[in-house]
Amino acid sequence: MLEQFLTLDYLIAFLISVIRMSTPLIFCALGALIASHAGTINMALEGIMLMASLIAVVFSALTQSVIGGIAGALLGGLIISLLFVYLHLYKQSDLIITGLALNTFASGGTVYLLFLLTGDKGTSRLLQSLSVPNWHIPIIKDIPILGKILSGHNALTYIAFIAVFLTYILVFRSRLGLRIRAVGFNPNAAASVGISVKKIKLQAFLLSGLFASLGGAFMSMGYLSYFARDMMAGRGYIGIAATTLANGQSFGTLLASLGFGAANAASITLATLNLKADLVAMIPYLATVIGLVIVSARKLAKARKKGQVTD
């Protein structure tokens, strides 16, 4: 039974799946990264992605254009982001509670909207929505094996990888990034030179939401060709975990996202075996918990060795 997994074809299929499964996580983790450098956590990422994926489908069906769908995703994500920013930054509501509330709101709200539009509470298959096309990369696609793995993915997958560079430049090389980090490290210092902490956080949250929205668009216009209720399945939180694991570094965040993507892919591959489906579906979440435990255990061990108080 196991030998069928050790063939080259299976390995290639698995790696393709890793890249595919990582795409929404990369977008979301980059969103989480931007917020983390502003010294905060974008707890609403799950809801932002969910709303984005629904509005993407609706807009692509209405406009019959892929670009329209992407614009819809950004708009959908923006709606939740703005609500979050308004409540948290301007009404000083609690970060965690507001995030969780909005995620719950998005979960119910998307089903409600879906029902209003299609009469279906489960999926948007009744809508004639489009998918983002796959890209075949010239030259690379002709390389044996590697071409198969790296070429022919959804356009958003490539954009996700490009987005890693973009966030790196945004956070570590731009003026806005410097201000975001200043606000994150020491808001008082930033405020003392006339930087509005609120405005910088607002920009960070909105950028964070926009990146995550693209992950939402991928889910309903790439990974699947329709919206399904609660289709994020915790990816918003896994994205936050990925950035935490990478300590806010852009390329580390990419690696961590790929790691969680691999866990996702493994759970799908193993599901084809006669294993308990529920158990296998648990793998990505288990991987998240284990990843976070390992990182914090290593920190703790280091601290113990150095004789620092650990309790």
Partner: peptide, 11 residues
């Protein structure tokens, strides 16, 4: 900080 010099759009 707050009055950063800029070159080609970047810090």
């Amino acid at each position: 900080l707050g009055m950063e010099p800029k070159k080609r759009g970047l810090f």
